[in-house]
Each structure stands twice: as structure tokens, then as C-alpha cells.
């Protein structure tokens, strides 16, 4: 008997009582102002949220936020300030040294500040190795909580996808919060 069969047999032998799957519809009010809630909670986890104003130029807006970023990685057609295309690198290692990554998020979650990014570049490394990350998000695409988020997730076909809420962080030394562990040291979500 293979290990698989042995494990399954042991499980079947040992289950004595079975339980039903509950209906997952927890009560909960939605947020009246999802953008406000998303912005507040994002800031509480050290992320920056900026609303692109009527007539404001996106590339100029990003430049103003990160004036010193010499290497900028993006595969988005609306971005003109990029210096590397993460779709064109041969190995993800070539993205090492990226100062700024600019990527597209599909929707945000008001309750916890997460943004859903199904892999939409050749090398997902760009989400993590960039020193700073800008996420573009359509401000009408913000859901209330993770239940709604996972309902929406069903509609995406992805090999890899990630919810990102703010910059990477650690408190492993004496519980002192340090922003910028292995991933981005700063994240700005631009609501468009």
C-alpha cells in the first residue's frame, strides 16, 4: 500500500463523528465610505494612499512621490517613466536593484487595507524585490471585507496571486517594529 493509501485508510478508520459545513454568511454592516476606511487602515499599517486628482498626470504624480528612483520597473502601458520591463527580463535576478516597481491591483479591501494582485507580469519578483512599490487601484473597486474579496477572487484565473497590505515589516528584534524587512520598504496605493 502506498503512503497515500495508508494515510487515507487511517483517516477513514479514525473518523467517528462527522460535522456539517456551516453556511458562511456572517452578519456585518458594510462601510458607508469604503475609500475612507481603506485609506485609514492602510495608513495604520504604514502604507501611503494617494488619490489621483482630476486632470493630474499619473507619471508626474509618481515622480513627485519618488523623485530619486533611478530604476523603475513596470509593464503597464500607461507608465512612461519605467526603465525596466519585468516582462522582458530573462531571469528574475535582473530585477535586483529595482528602486521602484509600479504594478496594477485589481481590488482593495476596506476592512484590512489589502490589495489583490493576481500575477500580471512575467516575474512576480517585481512585487517583492522593489525597494518601493506603487500599486494603481481603481477607487470604485474596493470591497468591504475578506468574504467579499474571496467571492471576487473566484473570477480571476491566476497561477500566483497575492494580497498586499503595506510595506514588508518585522518586529522580530524585541518587538520593535521595523518597516522594510525583505520586501518593499514603502508602498503607495494610488487610487484612480
Amino acid at each position: 500500500m502506498s503512503s497515500k493509501d495508508e494515510i487515507l485508510a487511517a483517516i477513514r478508520r479514525n473518523i467517528k463523528t462527522t460535522y456539517d459545513l456551516p453556511e458562511i454568511k456572517p452578519e456585518g454592516d458594510g462601510y458607508t465610505d469604503k475609500i475612507k476606511q481603506f485609506t485609514e487602515v492602510s495608513r495604520s499599517v504604514a502604507a501611503n494612499v494617494v488619490v489621483l486628482q482630476e486632470g493630474e498626470d499619473l507619471n508626474q504624480c509618481i515622480r513627485a512621490l519618488y523623485p530619486e528612483a533611478a530604476t523603475v520597473a513596470s509593464n503597464l502601458p500607461e507608465i512612461t517613466i519605467q526603465t525596466i520591463d519585468p516582462d522582458k527580463v530573462e531571469t528574475p535576478h535582473q530585477l535586483n536593484g529595482t528602486m521602484l516597481g509600479i504594478v496594477k491591483g485589481e481590488f482593495g479591501v476596506a476592512e484590512n487595507g489589502c490589495v489583490w494582485i493576481p500575477q500580471n507580469v512575467k516575474e512576480k519578483a517585481v512585487y517583492f524585490i522593489s525597494e518601493y512599490l506603487v500599486i494603481l487601484l481603481n477607487k470604485t473597486n474596493i470591497v468591504n471585507n475578506m468574504h467579499e474579496a474571496y467571492e471576487k477572487l473566484h473570477t480571476y484565473d491566476y497561477g500566483f496571486g497575492v494580497f498586499i497590505s503595506g510595506p514588508s515589516k518585522t518586529a522580530d528584534i524585541e518587538q520593535a517594529l521595523v518597516v522594510g524587512a525583505h520586501g518593499a520598504k514603502g508602498v503607495t496605493t494610488i487610487l484612480i
Partner: peptide, 26 residues
């Protein structure tokens, strides 16, 4: 996925008192 909706709301809040972990990777 609906089960994940429940677990992800509980996990980081219970663990470190954060609304979510920074990365929830699928």
C-alpha cells in the same frame, strides 16, 4: 475560498493584532 474569508479575518488579528498580514500569497 469562502472558508479562507473567515480564517484570514481571524488569523493576523489573533496573532499579532494586525488587520492582516502584509502578504497573503496564493
Amino acid at each position: 475560498h469562502s472558508a479562507l474569508g473567515v480564517f484570514t479575518r481571524l488569523l493576523a488579528r489573533s496573532a499579532t493584532g494586525q488587520p492582516s498580514t502584509t502578504y497573503t500569497s496564493h
